[in-house]
Design a binder for these strands. Sequence first.
RNA 1: GCGCCCGUAGCUCAACCGGAUAGAGCACUCGCCUUCUAAGCGAGUGGUUGCGGGUUCAAGUCCUGCCGGGCGUGCCA
Length: 561
Amino acid sequence: MKDAVVELLNQAVARLKEDGVIPEDHPVRVMVDNSRDKSHGDLASNLALTLAKPCGQPPRNLAEAVIKALPENNLIEKVDIAGPGFINFYLASESQAEIVKDILAAGHAFGRNQNGQQQKVQVEFVSANPTGPLHVGHGRGAAVGDSLSRVLEANGWKVTREFYYNDAGAQIQNLALSTQARAKGLGPDDAGWPEDGYRGDYISDVANAYMDKTTIDADDRHVTGSGDTDDLAAIRDFAVAYLRREQDLDLKAFGVEFDVFYLESSLYETGKVEATVKQLIEQGHTYEQDGALWLRTTDFGDDKDRVMRKQDGHYTYFLPDVAYHKDKFERGFKRVVNEQGADHHSTVNRVRAGLQALNEGIPEGFPDYVLHQMVMVTKGGEEVKLSKRAGSYVTLRDLIDEVGRDATRYFLVSRRADSQLTFDIDLARSQSSDNPVYYIQYAHARVHALLRKLNEQGHDYDQAAGIEALGQLELDDERELITQLRRYPEVVEHAGNSLEPAIIATYLKDLAALFHAYYNNNRMLVDDAALRNGRVALSVAISQVLFNGLDLLGVSAPETM
RNA sequence: GCGCCCGUAGCUCAACCGGAUAGAGCACUCGCCUUCUAAGCGAGUGGUUGCGGGUUCAAGUCCUGCCGGGCGUGCCA
């Protein structure tokens, strides 16, 4: 609809160029916005304002000329000039109502597009190390990353969801030592407890399972505990598998699934880390100093050079990161989005710098990043900091158990990633209009309640008749709802382009609010069959869009509440 | 110190590529259940968009300097 108006304006511009009103060589970019205020019509263009200077004419005169030059069409009912020179378009209501027909025909496909042309994109998210249960921050990553993946799919991208984890390194060694200490019956405050060991109760569970010779299935691996408290390597493998499975169960409870689990250790096993080092040295961006091997990342905009290989011969985490992203590119992902906590933002520049230093044609901005800020959890007006099980942080599981999956997902995805988030447990639990997730779901359920009621009353819902009757929907509430429905595909596009799934959540809340108002102010199930079918058709279209949008957030759309 | 993110109503947040009178919800005041789910709706109160400059026909939005908060600034990940 918007595109059609842009096209009409482009034709008008071409005509005015011929007439010499607009300088022939002046590049014109036509912009059309949805009007914020309904007294400004449905769509508005600032065209005349931007042309005023190059044309040397007052904007209102130009607006008049543009309107005169507009081609004939049956889309627009009325055009106005307003304010300093805005051109406001009032769309013909019959053509507006067409959107309802489109929604009913397209169903779940409504709002989806093929902008991505089925190109491959990888979204990496969560990527927690297997050293404990997932915490709220991981939950935000899971909610945002999965929703972002859904949004990209809706925009025609072929998405691979990937989870990367460090299964070697110092933190894993610490995990192994902590588990070993528990297996030997030590507690965090006993002598002999490892320095900076993981103190949470869950470590005892791991140790007990290891001693009981339990078998763990995680990812593609099966690991059985040996019960040998001196075999640190066996303890490490077991603990990693145990906590990976634990995290899997958390993700499953959250409704998030991954296509690929990528192990840091595999980068060593396949020689990719070594190959990356070699390539970086060959490309001449490295040097040795203080017994370590450095990468001159300052050549690529980093503020200081970074160590690749430590004095002790081990690599820093940074190097496998570069090897990993090189591998992503070579797997054919021309586009990669990394969703991470903002506490890792310092890696952004150095990973990109490392990829540039390889000098193999990886684009400068590769990969994309979406960084989410911290989450603070509150209950009863107080900040909640601890969970018994994890010791030092609130777990994702705590939230799901307490407020449910839908509310947890909605709350974690409904705010822009780059602002700090307060997760109010009391609000998320409440079953009232205070709680946006119930509010939206209730709007969806209300439509289904209507359909059930209709049945009870012995009426059939005649969709064809409803579509025929759309022209009769002339109430302000109805026009506003139809306008809101028309915006949905643009919202999906916008959320995809800006990598901000939260935009969907805002949209749905607004749509639900309009529907609740409509429902309260008007009767749907009236005696007039045509009007009744028309209103029900509109309601069904609304429930379809609510369903589609909630699906992009990973939130369910129940038919009864 | 330096880098990144944020700062909008008492609170939680919107505001599409810079557009017209900055919008919702909560809270507070007042209304609406013999009528399709009141898990809902309506009305009112509430703003120097942290502060100061700049660019622009037009700035919450862009640039810049301060102030405040968060995160980072490891041969940790």
